Every structure is written in C-alpha cells, then in structure tokens.
Computed example of a mutant assay.
Amino acid sequence: MRGKRRETLKGLTAALAASVLAPVSRAVRAQQKRSLHLELVGYTLGIHVPQLMAVRQLMLEAGYAEPRIDRIESMQVIAQSIIGGSAELGDADVVSALRASEAKAPLTVVGLVYNSTDQVLIVNADKIKSYADFRNPENGIALNDLGDFIYVLVSDALARNGVDIEDATVIQMGGSGSRMNALLAGRIAAVPIHYDQAADVMKKGNYKILVEPWKQYKRWFSEVWVANRKWLGDQANQKALVDFNKATIKSFRQATKDYGYFAEGYRKYATVPGHADIPDAALRPIWEQLATEIGAWPADGGFKLEYFKELLPVYQHAKALKGQLDLNLAIDARYVDEALQQLG
C-alpha cells in the first residue's frame, strides 16, 4: 500500500509540476520570439494599409512578437535615425535615403513600403491655367521639403512642360492637411495632396488635378524601407529582413485581390478621421484606385536595381542627387529576391 501511495504521490507531483511549468515554458518561448524595432511615418492612409497588415499581423503569423513601433512625422528624420542606430528598419523618403548613401552614410534601401504614390498635384484653376503661370511669383507651390520625392516629382512635371522649378515660388510646408488648408484659403496656388483628399477639395471650388504620377511614370518610388549596413551584417538580421519582405509581399498580393482584406486593415489602422466607420461605398473606390490604376502593391515587390537606375536622371535633374551615388551600395535587392524565391 505504501508503495502504491508513493507512486500515486509521485504521479500527482509530476502532473502538478507539469501544469505549473507549462505556462512558464510558453511564456519563456513567447519572450524568445523576436520583436523588430521599426520607425514608421506618423500617419496611415489607404496606400499604407498593406504595410500595417504585414507589420501588425503577418509578421506575428510568421512567428515574430509584436513589433516595437515609433511614429515619426518626418521621413527625412527617420533616415537619419536609422543611420544613428535608433531602430532596425525605417520607412524613409527614397530621395533622402539615396542622398544619405551618396554622402557615405551607412544606409541601404532594402524594400518598398508601396509602389508609385497616391499624391497628386492639385491647383487653383483660377490662378493656374497653364504651366507658364507657375513663373508668377504669386502662384506659390507648397511642398513638404525641398529635395524630397515630391519635390523631385513636381520639378520633373514642370520641366516636362518647359518650366524650371527654380523659376517658381516654392514654399516649404509640412503635412498634407496643412497644405490642403493653405490651398483652400488661397494662400498658395498648387499643392501635392493625397488622391482622396483631392476629391474633397475639388468639391469646394475651381480646383483641378494637374499631375497624376502613375500616368507619367512607369514606376515611381516614394517610401522605402531602409536599414543600417552594420545591422545588415548580422545573419540573424538578414533572415528577419527576408521574413519581413515576405510578409510585405504577401500583404501586397492579398490587398490587391481582396477588398475585404484591405477594408479590414483600413478600418483598423488608418489615421484618417472616421476611418473605423467608413462605408464600403466610400472605401471601395479608394481601394480600386490604389490596387488597379496606381498599382500601389506589386505582386513581385516592385524592387529591382534597374528600376532605380531608370529614375536616377530624374533625381539628378532636380538636383536632389549630385551624380556621385553608388547604386550597388545604396540599393540591396537580395532580401526581396530571397523572399520571392521562398514565396514562389
């Protein structure tokens, strides 16, 4: 009897230990999951939805922990922050990233946040009747930053129509909302704003869209993922970056074909007022524009060295780059290529 009792007690002790230790071991395993430290722009619009779905959901499904996310308003600041090692990956302005690399900073572009842009150049049609009207110093153009991808975009659009941007009045003004309000108040004559914002503006007066980038460029880059080259030297980081690009491309593909996936992400993550309650009648046209006409989320990731080579003359003409850039150092497509191989 005593032997049986000892065996029973031993079994109970083992069972109790297992029941106590099991949650602990699960907690330990959870702690061992990697959490990426990311820096994102301070807002999320429709074009950013696949990015947030990849970061917030698909990476978790791939076995990663919830990321640490810092929100920073300026993409130029994000580029400098990644150079300083403040985070692992950052959502930066493509021109700022290339300019930093040109200046010998250890920054490399490693993937796309999205393809093209949903920003258009909208003008006060009472003031701007032709491109020549931009030479009038009273017809100011409000831009976020002198030398960023939007500046390059506007510079090239003007140049194609016989106007040097240096002959125009350019006013530095951060935030598309602030620029839109300045346009409506008559303080400036032209402004780049997001496509869905432009639709609202045109209801309020004699405004028209002058430049739609996706109609002028086969490819256009705006926001890109950047990493510090020292960080890229670690094999564990390289694996994480491949997984990160896999999640991004999977999200691109899903968002392009599945309105429901996009709508879920928009209502959950967008920072647009009323985003959680936006009806399908208003949201579906935004998705259709982004997924089809703009082609914001390419199924192959849209990231190849030759695509950047095609745009170099545009950057250089706008004097955003000096022509001393080593693209093989500034752009590294290996992690997107490996992600595509694994995805098939």
Rank of each mutant, 00 (worst) to 15 (best):
G3C: 08
R6Q: 14
L9A: 14
T13D: 09
T13H: 15
A14E: 11
R29S: 08
Q31H: 08
R34E: 15
S35R: 15
L38Q: 00
I47F: 08
V55N: 05
L60Y: 03
I69L: 07
I72N: 03
S74Q: 07
G84D: 13
A87M: 10
A87F: 14
A97C: 01
A97R: 01
E102N: 06
A103R: 04
P106R: 03
T108I: 02
V109D: 07
L112E: 04
L112N: 00
V113K: 00
N115V: 05
L121E: 06
K127I: 02
N136K: 12
N136A: 09
I141H: 05
L143A: 09
N144K: 02
D145M: 07
L146P: 04
G147F: 07
D148S: 02
F149T: 09
L153W: 04
A185Y: 06
A185V: 03
A190P: 02
V201L: 08
K204L: 09
Y207G: 08
Y207P: 03
K208F: 02
F221M: 12
W231F: 07
D234R: 03
N237W: 01
K250W: 00
Y261A: 10
E264A: 12
G265S: 08
Y266K: 10
Y269L: 15
A270L: 13
H275L: 13
D277A: 15
D277Q: 14
P279C: 12
D280T: 14
A282R: 12
R284M: 15
Q289D: 15
A291V: 13
E293T: 13
G295K: 10
Y307L: 06
F308N: 08
K319D: 15
K319L: 13
L325H: 05
N328P: 00
A330S: 11
I331K: 01
Y335Q: 02
V336K: 01
L343K: 04
